[in-house]
Design a binder for these strands. Sequence first.
DNA 1: AGCGCTTGCGAAAGCGCTTTCGTACTCTAG
DNA 2: CTAGAGTACGAAAGCGCTTTCGCAAGCGCT
Lengths: 343, 343
Amino acid sequence: MPKPGSRLRLVDVAERAGVSLATASRALSGRDGVSAEVADRVRRVSQELGYVANPYARTLAGGASSTVGLVVHQVDDPYFSEIAGGVIEVAAEQGLLVQICHSGRDPHFELRQIRHLIAQRVGIILIAGSGYTDNRVEAETKAELAAYQSLGGRVAVIGRHSLGADAVLPDNEAGGRALAEHLLGLGHRRIAVAAGTEGLTTVADRLAGVAAALRGHGLDLAELPVVHTDFTREGGRVAAERILGEHPETTAVIALNDAMAMGVLAVLRAHRISVPERVSVVGFDDVSVAADLAPSLTTVRLPMTEMGRTALALALKPRSNRPRRRPTGHTLVVRDSTGPAPA
Amino acid sequence: MPKPGSRLRLVDVAERAGVSLATASRALSGRDGVSAEVADRVRRVSQELGYVANPYARTLAGGASSTVGLVVHQVDDPYFSEIAGGVIEVAAEQGLLVQICHSGRDPHFELRQIRHLIAQRVGIILIAGSGYTDNRVEAETKAELAAYQSLGGRVAVIGRHSLGADAVLPDNEAGGRALAEHLLGLGHRRIAVAAGTEGLTTVADRLAGVAAALRGHGLDLAELPVVHTDFTREGGRVAAERILGEHPETTAVIALNDAMAMGVLAVLRAHRISVPERVSVVGFDDVSVAADLAPSLTTVRLPMTEMGRTALALALKPRSNRPRRRPTGHTLVVRDSTGPAPA
DNA sequence: AGCGCTTGCGAAAGCGCTTTCGTACTCTAG
DNA sequence: CTAGAGTACGAAAGCGCTTTCGCAAGCGCT
């Protein structure tokens, strides 16, 4: 830690500008009660001297904390790193700093991280990543966030509902439906699903979309193989092996995110099963590498970077009575991993 | 910001434990001058009450800041997100928070971010990503960091030399040599290089390794096409188009990172040029998707996550007289994107 | 002229912590 | 039995900022 005394303080600026500490503070934080002329002078002097307020002192004194806490499942997952990129962009524009922590897809660990952020007095908390279908775990988190918000903290979430906060909502259900419709339109009927961990709302929602599309074609999801494994590439591998072993007649695999789809493709390649000739594969999210896979992946695009930007933008607005909701929309991106069902 | 008075303060803990504020502070921060018995009692009470110190007050009062600033070129680049993942892991173990900001591969912008972090009084600064061969820009950054360190701040860098701080050094030159040797061994002679932005030390070092290998086989890098474009996928695309247009006889492309290699592969695919039958392609870094590309990418593996962990570990040690250096080692990973030179 | 308003500013009181300084007490040595 | 050193703790002084409060000056109104 830089030693005290070594850095410019607000008093120095005030002195140099010939005003009191109080006036300098007001001038720089844009409060009124200062004449435009004086405010201008203070700002100019502060500029010249290269003054930057000590955020610790400022926050301690009751000013707004200028750091935003971002909780992601795992930052080296492209889905989350793209979201983080969006958040960081907006934060940089606003002169805010972003603190990132991992939840590791564990609701209890996530709660711990959130408590830590609150204890650290961050002014804004952003939570990205799926919620949990088990309401008991979510309830505690929700309560913690409610208390935080009632004390003036701002919260926005990405991809989860019912946390009592502003939310950016990816179009999971409609996206799931679009993927299933696409495959059904290509004539596929023996469809398997590589689903992520059971208990994630994202998985449930995407699955619901798939089920709805199937019903429209007289099919029942309950009768098709749905394999729940980790929501990661490795999970995709495991799911693919199981699907191949137990349902060799499958002609299409719906992976509920791109990471899983990558695992599925890897297994199919290892088994020398050609995609899309013998089996079609779809993913979800459209992470940036999806287009570069072999074959390039048909998937549903979610605007991750934009979602990150929107979440922070929401949190920067004053709180509204009812939580705001920003659906993201989605786009089906058809590439080379899907084709007509084999005869 | 949670309002004052709403949260547990150290005085509350002290009162409840029947000691003074000073003693409570000493007990919790492990300073001596407190009997083991009293210290224990304070710690127990603090536990029970769920007390967490206010970091702003603590830092303001002269304690060590518990946040580490991480500067990366771009967090949604897998190379950096994996490094960030490693940093965050170690930080979580130590109860530290990580603030991430972008430098956007611009030395001046980077310097601004570093100044911002210093002004924010973070206790540790980690800088990831290539340095710049132009010493003038680096000099200013170096001076700033030196001042910061002399005031007690800790700094560690990843992938750059000569910043006067502890460094994790990826094996760029040896890696570059290994890649070139590999291609030469396969009989390739008409080799082109898709190099990143000129002026990055990473590019220069990797290129130097390539040049050394070539010399060993009686070739001169100066006589081969070396195309400098952005160190990104898009840059890879541009480079590949240029190489294809101006040197159609090329049988192997060395991309100086995996992102560029992906761009190169995309262009070759678009031109229906088969890899590795007609052209071999190699990358550098081994980001996690490299294995899932089409074809899977031959590359040099750098242990990014580990590099992130090591950097923070270095910064957590007390400063040494001479900057420490931790070379990373490298591994050539041969996959499907390279094959014998066509006859 | 006198009254209350508003406006522009400075003095000073904290915010919650760490740390210095001072005090009371205990221990060993002379 | 007292001097000097050492130990365990409390009182209080900041750290650099925001904000409340108070004061003085300027305004329009009766």
